[in-house]
Amino acid sequence: MIRVESLNNKFGHITTANDVSCHFEEKKVTVLLGGSGSGKSTLLKQMVGLGRPDSGSIMFDGRDITKLARKELYELRKKMGMLFQGSALFNSLNIYENIAFPLREHTNLSDSVIKTIIKIKLEMVGLRGVENMMPSQLSGGMTKRVGLARAIVLDPKVVFYDEPTSGLDPIASGVIDKLIVDLNKKLGVTSIVVSHDIDSAFRIADKLIILFYGNLIAEGTPEEIKNSPDPKVRQFITGSPDGPIPFTLTDKDFIEDILID
């Protein structure tokens, strides 16, 4: 479905992708795991065409996203849904208009058909009845679910989730996890999830990919990752502060750094 090949990207001196190659299989849930600054969100954004890498390719249905013109990208994005980290709802629009937005933007459907689609999507995320509420009146978990309803309103082939459970309580996280799995299993939606929530990742993933400062350090099934002997993988999944993954970004000596500056 999506194949990343030899991807390289840097922001200044920070490497977000160092010769990264990986495959996101059709109709599977793949979770991109990694700490802050590991490059996972940048990779996700580049997969939907929000920013281009320095080099390498991202093949989506046989087309290289990194080389598409704006118009082609716009067309291709109709096959993609994105749940943003902060859900990115329009605060001035009610829930109905938020979910209707992609339909009005991309289709010529009648208002009555749009109304029915919105009811179907809200039922899928368990929120039918909130149509007239404003985003500010919703809890964090409800906001994510509305964001998800909007992400799937055009029946995308792939849904990208950027930190879908961040900032949610355990029950709300569990609800979002279940929705991701249900949409994947029932609708056959290919799901790509960026997360640093280990528990959630192991619950939902068919495949896990772990990034560490722009390097792909492990990929495999949850079972394979759990049994990985790699110290970096072990440190990440156990959340240990001590190990080969440093807390700071630079290797430069701290005392030397502040004295020389």
């Binding site: 459907l109 009555s112 058909v113 029915t116 689609i117 179907i120 999507k121 309103v153 029946d155």
Partner: peptide
């Protein structure tokens, strides 16, 4: 058939 097809049948 996608959601818009279903919605059309409902209509």
């Amino acid at each position: 058939m996608d959601s818009s097809g279903i919605a059309t049948m409902i209509e």
